[in-house]
Design a binder for these strands. Structure first.
Ligand SMILES: [Zn+2]
Ligand SMILES: [Zn+2]
Ligand SMILES: [Zn+2]
Ligand SMILES: [Zn+2]
Lengths: 135, 135
DNA sequence: ACTCATATTGACAATCATTATCAATAAGCC
DNA sequence: GGCTTATTGATAATGATTGTCAATATGAGT
């Protein structure tokens, strides 16, 4: 019952590359659409599976958008960080938040909570999308 | 196109009360089940609508669980705030985070983002659950 | 209390992201 | 080249949420 052997398929690699060519967070559906438009016959379920694998292998970051979608992004920095995300085009900026890290620790400790984790994401409209939205 | 007048129905009040009788975050489905078990013939769609209204009226807090469900909770303190939640028993503490509010605004503005929103939640083990977990 | 214009309800259908099926395929190993 | 079995992908299934719309109830006006 050891770890089931992983195999290398062009599908996995295609998803990895497609993620890498994208700056922001993308949904599985969107990534699948991009791949198909690029001529790949890859299946939707496979994209979902590949993204889930990449996320558990810490090769991709994942978060849920305000409307419940699961979004993925190629992992650039390996350390702990947070994101500023355009909810229109997906443009993402990695942000440091030392003050927030400390605050989270403190507030948890103050109330006797242990093993504290936190979810901190900022969503907005990037400069470009803000202009577009202004007709 | 002024604001459409709101009417008071026993359904709205039932949802409000059911929320108040619950300490932690609950899903619309769960709250509907509780109400029906209590003898109320309220409809599921109505519970969804009532909860959405309460949330927009800042009478209830909402957040999405790690698996994508929308959860609601009666609001004890008024105004914008965040939550410290025990991931074992659901105990919830409302927390102020003025520093985080300012940080979120600044970081968004610094990168030219507008209409910034943020998701900030702290999950951990409360004091009681920490003791239990210590065998 | 009666009327009326309309906000609200609720059973049900529709949507939408995600997951489960499962036969067909292909990766890695001999 | 064969064998084992992880992987794929078309499709069905799931499950939470939202839309539909006729029937109902609310609140203001009389
Ligand atoms: Zn944008
Ligand atoms: Zn952090
Ligand atoms: Zn607890
Ligand atoms: Zn805040």
């Amino acid at each position: 019952m050891s770890t089931p052997a992983k195999r290398n398929t062009w599908q996995r690699e295609a998803v990895r590359e497609a993620l890498g060519h994208n700056d922001g967070f993308v949904s599985a559906q969107a990534l699948h659409a991009v791949l198909r438009e690029g001529g790949s016959p890859i299946g939707l379920a496979t994209v979902y599976r590949a993204l889930a694998d990449l996320a558990t292998a810490d090769e991709a970051d994942s978060l849920q958008s305000p409307d419940g979608e699961n979004l993925f992004r190629a992992c650039t920095s390996s350390g702990h960080h947070h994101h500023l995300i355009c909810r229109s085009c997906g443009l993402t900026v990695e942000i440091e938040a030392h003050a927030v890290e400390a605050w989270a620790q403190d507030v948890a400790a103050e109330h006797g909570f242990t093993a504290a984790q936190h979810v901190v994401d900022v969503f907005g409209l990037c400069a470009a999308c803000t202009k577009l939205a202004a007709h």
